[in-house]
Structures are given as C-alpha cells and as structure tokens.
Simulated scan of single mutants.
Amino acid sequence: MDPAVITERVAPPLIAGEREMLRAYLDFHRSTLAMKCDGLSDEDLRRQSMPPSTLSLLGLVRHMAEVERAWFRRVIAGEDIPLVWSPEGDFQVAYDASKATRSEAFDAWQAEVVHSRRIEAEAESLDVTGHQAKWGEDVSLRLVMLHLIHEYARHNGHADFLREGIDGTVGA
C-alpha cells in the first residue's frame, strides 16, 4: 500500500436493513483505521504511544488482522488455522510492530478483510452460528459483526491519539 494513497471512506446509510447497516458500519470503521495511516512512513506507523505501551498504528493494523481472522475464519467458518503472527493464539503478539512494514501489515489485514467479507456474504443469514472456543459458546454472525464494529471503534479511538502524536492530525 502506497503511503500517499488517500483512503476513501463511505458514510453508512441512514436508513437500511439490518445486514446492510452492519456491513456499512463495519466497512466505515475499517476504512477509518486505514485513513488514520494515510500518508505516513513505515517509521511513523511503528512509532509507539508512550512507555510502557508498545501500541502503534501498525500494531493496531496487525491486531485487527488477527481479530478479523479469529472471528470470521476461525469462529464463523470453523477454519482450523493459527493466528497470523501467533500460532499460540496470543493477540498481543500482533501489537509488536517494531520491525513491521506497512506492506506486511496491510497485506495481511486486507487479505483477512477479503475473507471476512466473503464469509459474511456467503452466510444465509445473520443467525448463522459458529463456535467461540474461548467462551465455550456458539455465537451468531450478528454478534460477530457487532463485536468487530465495537473492536474497530475502540481501536480507532486509539488510532486518533497515535496519529495526533505523530503529526498533529486530528478528527474523523
């Protein structure tokens, strides 16, 4: 991904069916994270917030690749695959982006988003379920989409602060 690329972010509809609304809000938050990274070098994207935190924009992108993979591929599709950066299933490993590059992080994240969109589109309804082994419970696609919207919204707040610390850019 070219750092000069400007991410297009489409506002979700004001009136739509449940599934269309969930898709639109999830895509809105995905593009918000990408937007927060626009125009930054790999070094900027690896810049950590403040000690002792190792949080960085690239760490957030890597983390969200793991989140997409875990919830859509492992839970809903039932694929028996390890996480991208941690065969042991440790989501925190993704946050260490000290040697990561934009292309490595974004390629992995965007590949997982493609899988997630396919899995969601192929599901006959939001009531399709998968097993969340960590919880020992079955969960619906609806819950997964809502969970990811929540996860992106929370991390996009972190991305706001990280971006402001890098170059003063704030907003949206």
Rank of each mutant, 00 (worst) to 15 (best):
K36V: 01
R46N: 10
W109V: 02
F91W: 02
V128W: 04
E68I: 02
D27H: 04
L58A: 03
Q110C: 06
T32Q: 05
V84L: 09
P51M: 13
P3T: 13
I81A: 06
R142L: 12
L143C: 01
A34I: 03
D138H: 12
S125D: 02
A108W: 07
E88N: 00
E20Q: 14
F28T: 02
F28Q: 06
G17C: 12
V75T: 03
R30W: 05
T54Q: 14
A100Q: 01
A153V: 14
S56N: 12
M35D: 06
P13G: 13
Q48H: 08
I119Y: 01
G168M: 15
W85P: 00
T54K: 14
A153I: 15
C37M: 08
V5N: 06
Q132L: 13
A97R: 04
E151A: 12
S125N: 03
E137K: 13
Q92G: 01
A34E: 11
R73N: 12
R47N: 09
T7M: 11
D90I: 03
R118H: 02
W71K: 06
S125I: 09
R62V: 04
Q110R: 10
L143N: 09
T32C: 09
L45Y: 11
P82L: 02
A65V: 12
F106T: 03
M64H: 15
K36C: 05
C37E: 07
E18Y: 12
P13N: 14
D96S: 05
L14W: 04
A105M: 10
T54S: 15
T101L: 06
V93C: 01
K99A: 04
E43C: 07
D27Q: 00
G165V: 11
R30F: 04
D80L: 08
G168V: 14
M64F: 12
I119F: 01
R118Q: 10
Q48N: 11
D42K: 09
W85N: 01
H29Y: 10
W85S: 00
W109C: 06
L26T: 09
A108C: 07
M35S: 06
H131C: 01
V61I: 14
V61H: 04
V144M: 11
D107P: 03
M50K: 12
V128H: 05
H63I: 09
W85I: 00
G165M: 15
R74G: 02
L143M: 12
G39T: 03
E66Q: 13
D2V: 13
E151C: 13
E122C: 04
G165D: 14
D2T: 07
P87C: 02
Y95V: 01
R9M: 10
V93W: 00
D167M: 13
V84R: 00
D96N: 10
I76F: 09
A77R: 09
R74E: 01
S98A: 07
E79T: 00
F91C: 02
L162M: 11
S140A: 04
V144Y: 06
K134S: 10
I15F: 14
E18F: 09
A11T: 10
F72I: 12
V93R: 01
K99P: 00
A159G: 04
H150K: 15
L162E: 15
T7S: 14
Y152D: 12
L143T: 11
L141V: 03
S49G: 06
F161E: 13
S86W: 02
A111L: 00
I6Q: 13
S98Y: 02
G130E: 10
P12I: 07
E122P: 01
F72M: 15
E79M: 04
E79P: 02
S49M: 10
